[in-house]
Amino acid sequence: MSRADGGDAARYTRDELIAELGLTPEYAEKVWNAFGFARRSTPDKIFTDADVAALRLFADSESTMPEEAQVATARAIGQTMSRLAEWQADQLRELDRNPEVPWSLDQMSGALGQIQQLIWRRHLAIALEHGVERETDERLDLVVGFADIVGYTSLSRRIALDELEKLLESFEEDTFEIVAANGGHVVKTLGDAVMFTFNDPGAAAATTVALHGLSETERIPQLRAGLARGRVLSRLGDVFGEPVNIAARLAGSARPGTTLVDEMMGESLSDDDRFYLKSVPTLSVRGYKRLKARALETNRHLDDT
């Protein structure tokens, strides 16, 4: 009999699980597909009693969570886990081909699963303890930031793939570290760009200053960044709304090594003597014909006062 990662014996096929939970086949297929699996049955016993208990709680949430929200939650989990699993499988296969690695694939995948649970539990505890209380409609007043590598497209054509991989790894590692150290949250990375959010405008501004400092070494080319503040919709780990669009447009319009901020962000920083806001011409970008912005700079005279 197969064993699940948690050590419980797998006792249920997919159809037996559906019957045990009392789900309609139509709903079960919809959720199964949202998790990222093909709509076909399997004779394999792949579910444990612990799986049944967890999925029962999910299925019984229909009275407080509409079916559409349940399916959307399943899709977010499925997409995230699928991308993570594909990357992990590549890494594990590479390790398995190395004759100097003493562990089997099963040993490495088991250890990786345990570590993944540990890290997830810790991140969840931190989010529950320090997360921002939000309204029921999940709208928040946040600073949204984008930073990307200047000239990435042409650069990617000139350098070898292994060099490109090292560049992106350095960019992702360093930006995550800086955003987290300043109390922000990385929403996602988009290859040569990172999107992040902050509750504190000053911390967001300090973060972009630190991000530009990465280019002082040869590891990462110059960056450009954009910051916008306003009401956003937070949904399934992502954020949506006008500040997201504006921050992206500002980053795309910024000169190498600079940060542009929108009006509301500028007002939020007006009393912060760490920064200086420089006037720039009104921008005409996709979706915004007259976008007012200012360039964010550190206050060079602060140390002289």
Rank of each mutant, 00 (worst) to 15 (best):
E16S: 12
R83F: 13
F58K: 02
R56T: 00
R40N: 08
E68D: 12
W103M: 11
F47K: 04
G113Y: 07
T48Q: 06
R97L: 12
V71L: 06
Q114M: 14
R121F: 12
T80F: 15
A19Q: 13
A125Y: 12
L128M: 11
E86W: 13
Y27V: 13
S41N: 09
L112G: 03
P99W: 14
K45M: 11
T42R: 11
Q117N: 03
A38D: 05
A85V: 07
E29I: 14
T42C: 07
R83K: 13
S63H: 10
D15T: 12
S41D: 11
T80I: 09
A85W: 10
L124S: 03
G36T: 03
D51N: 11
A111V: 07
G22D: 00
E62G: 02
V52E: 01
A10I: 08
P25I: 04
N98T: 00
F58H: 01
V101P: 00
W120T: 07
Q91D: 07
N33V: 15
L55V: 00
R122G: 05
F35N: 01
R75K: 06
M81E: 06
D90L: 12
K30T: 11
I18V: 15
E68W: 15
A76F: 04
A85T: 09
A53R: 07
Q88G: 03
A76S: 01
A72H: 01
D106N: 08
R122P: 06
I18K: 14
D49K: 05
D60E: 06
A9M: 13
V71M: 03
L124P: 01
P25N: 09
D60L: 07
L128I: 07
